[in-house]
Nucleic acid binder design. Structure first.
Lengths: 233, 233
DNA sequence: CGTTTCATTGAAGACGGTCAAGGTCCGTGG
DNA sequence: CCACGGACCTTGACCGTCTTCAATGAAACG
């Protein structure tokens, strides 16, 4: 019996392209790995030696300048694929933001397996095309939106992303108007291309305007969804 | 005889994955199309009805906000693939910057063809992964670099990109230190997330510092490559 | 040769960054 | 149970960079 039988993302990750026998073969070259918050799986500039499926948790993809400026270039959730197949080096670091569970493959093993399973490659292709679309949309935000618009956009995206997970864990923490942020203010800043202070100020302003509420540091309640959308632009 | 026999990018576009017979079949569903500067092939938000290979020319991919702010999210060159296969809508407009020649396919036709030719999908996948890497690297520039760094980085990238085309057209216009920009100042601004004025000022400053020369509006000579790299960060 | 488009330059101001101080939360150990 | 320390967050004052607004200048085109 393979780990895959009990895998939470068996039917939503790229593995969904494979039948029982193929899954068995893929399982043979992969292994589970747990990451603690802050722990990195790969570093920017590394040789690309491994790729993985995210099973549980949230991870960030980051790149930075020599003098220490950092930018989060992507955030990945369960069922997402991470790492750089078919290429020599990794262009960004991958670091866990929460405790995370990933299904790791040696890059060479995975490349070989993928070459023999076009359906898997197809899933990976559509996933990559979607990721590229999302990344390009984010470029508009980074370069052209104001701090206020950035924060509003971010909160709306979080509400949408985290609402999906609300049903799975029936703790009712996350819903369309109320959720717990998986990020620190610093990380939100890194995502939006802002400083921690600016993020804080904008959040406070939105609260003062009665558009959101901030019961605790990590919790957000959206009081006026329409207004938030109007601000997001 | 198909158009492909004389195609300039036959061996560098994704078509390189196909043998003579397969190329013939692909040729049957594609057609050539010429675009004039400023002419668009697809518009942001459109149904994704066509995809294409770029044969000749340079095109921009853009997205914008309702109130008219625009961001160039990608620039494509000969042999690049454009459009959104396997998806309903297009997330960005595609517009020719120079006179351009593209090889257009109906999206549904292409999707069907690709599904039957894994080698083609593989090429498309590696190309898309590379594009994603480049796009993410650009995010760092957009959000964290200063205007001076942005312009320096841009000029270096242009020098590199355009040097490749120098040999093909033996007009000697483009080399490692001298080239003709395919963009207006406004377009450079849209690429870097700056205003036209800031781009102009930074270019002038680099010229005053003796790092570059600007014989005409569109021409650039790099006088001190090392200094430019130091500034780019 | 005039008109349009594109580029440069200057002055003023806004937005967000930087620096600094204080506050809140939370775990650990006295 | 409270005190302490550290990480995280908020708030304020100031300042620099880039944008905005405006005018002028240079090419390109009919």
């Amino acid at each position: 019996m393979s780990y895959c039988d009990t895998c939470l993302v068996r039917n939503s990750a790229i593995c969904a392209a494979l039948d029982a026998k193929e899954i068995e073969a893929l399982n043979a070259i992969g292994r589970r790995r747990q990451l603690e918050p802050g722990e990195s799986l790969v570093w920017e500039g590394d040789q690309s030696v491994l790729v993985a499926n995210v099973i549980e948790g949230i991870l960030k993809l980051t790149t930075g300048t020599e003098d220490g400026r950092e930018q989060i270039v992507g955030v990945v959730y369960p069922a997402d694929f991470i790492g750089r197949p078919f290429g020599a080096t990794t262009s960004h670091s991958i670091t866990a933001l929460t405790t995370a569970n990933v299904c790791v493959f040696g890059r060479a093993d995975f490349d070989r397996f993928a070459a023999e399973h076009p359906a898997l490659e197809h899933k990976l292709l559509t996933r990559t095309l979607g990721e590229l679309d999302r990344t390009r949309k984010w470029m508009l935000l980074l370069s052209r939106k104001t701090a206020e618009e950035k924060v509003a956009t971010f909160l709306l995206e979080m509400a949408e992303r985290l609402a999906d997970t609300a049903c799975e864990h029936s703790d009712r923490k996350n819903s369309a108007e109320h959720f717990e942020l998986p990020f620190t203010r610093q990380q939100i800043g890194d995502i939006l291309g802002l400083t921690i202070e600016t993020v804080s100020r904008q959040m406070t302003q939105l609260r003062r305007d009665g558009i959101i509420d901030l019961p605790t540091r990590r919790e957000v309640t959206i009081r006026d969804h329409g207004a938030l959308e109007a601000i997001a632009g």
